[in-house]
Write a protein that binds this DNA or RNA. Sequence first.
DNA 1: GTCTATATCATGATAGAC
DNA 2: GTCTATCATGATATAGAC
Lengths: 197, 197
Amino acid sequence: MARSAAVRRVDDTRQQVLDAVLALFAERGYFATSIQDISRESAVSVGSIYHHFGDKEGIARALYQALSDRMSSRISWISARHASVHDQCRGIVETLFEMTEREPLVMDFMLYAKHKDFLPEEKPICSSRPFELMRTIVAAGMESGEIRRMDVMVASTSLFGGPIRMIVARLDAVLQVPLSRHLDEVWECAWRSVAAR
Amino acid sequence: MARSAAVRRVDDTRQQVLDAVLALFAERGYFATSIQDISRESAVSVGSIYHHFGDKEGIARALYQALSDRMSSRISWISARHASVHDQCRGIVETLFEMTEREPLVMDFMLYAKHKDFLPEEKPICSSRPFELMRTIVAAGMESGEIRRMDVMVASTSLFGGPIRMIVARLDAVLQVPLSRHLDEVWECAWRSVAAR
DNA sequence: GTCTATATCATGATAGAC
DNA sequence: GTCTATCATGATATAGAC
């Protein structure tokens, strides 16, 4: 069923705000970003912003939800495209690296922001859907014999912890070259840490 | 040279404030903590706080400095106590796990807080002294042949990235059991990721 | 649904006595 | 060095016209 033009417009307004806050939160952080800033950067009035999101926290919640959904669907898509758990996990790391280069703001907000400071009710990031998906895949790898039998949380943090630290280093500009240049080496280390063979 | 009683007292006042802000920052975050809160919890007046720290950011800077120094000296101490790089790194992970259980607030502030949001001038955490020390040790491991030759940053993030993610999971209460219960398994994975043999 | 103008309030920081 | 009282600013959120 096609959405009406009115609904389209509403979504556009919301999206304008979300695009603006992503940039602002990444640049200055949640608390240093005022509603005025958001209004100016998004070209949406303060009144409209409150109409759509209720309060400032509501904006952050909506952004978190949207980006979390986006990451989840990418991970699911990658997972479905590969047969072995090894290839699935490598594909996830590769995608995370690519996202970091192409949409650093998204990764900054998802992997680096301390959501608990401004979204106290939200589940911690490592309990969120994308991370749950990763753990599910890791668990499947133990079933199939590709990954050594151990605590699933330990295996997941071991497999993805290194790559995530590399992403953080890149976001901090500590790492000066594109992540892709280190992909093979990072993945080699990550997989060795849990591989069965 | 012995410090005078006056200096002792000054240090005590400063320490009272630092103890209070550590707890407050960990609980609510930097921005949700007001100077009034700090004054009340530390039992030090607002005027004295400003006298000693200049401004709110100065408090955070002092705390960061103090805890960073503490972590650095512990790491150096551990490093000096062990002969092989393998044992040094394992000792560091063990100590980080113990610190997380015994002083979760310290680890929360050091490994989890997003300092850039409130200390924009400070170097990113992964360029800080403790992390530099870890990289130095890893580099030494490559020299000695214990660790495979590769980019030092990649090796460091691979070795310590998993353990750090476990610490974050524990701080988020996602992990319900003490980290010590997973130490062997976590270390096994971490070391495999970079070990030469 | 969108906008401008405004109310309300809390905060960081200071002044100045002791 | 320490304290209390106060200021000035800028924030979130709302009211109400269109």
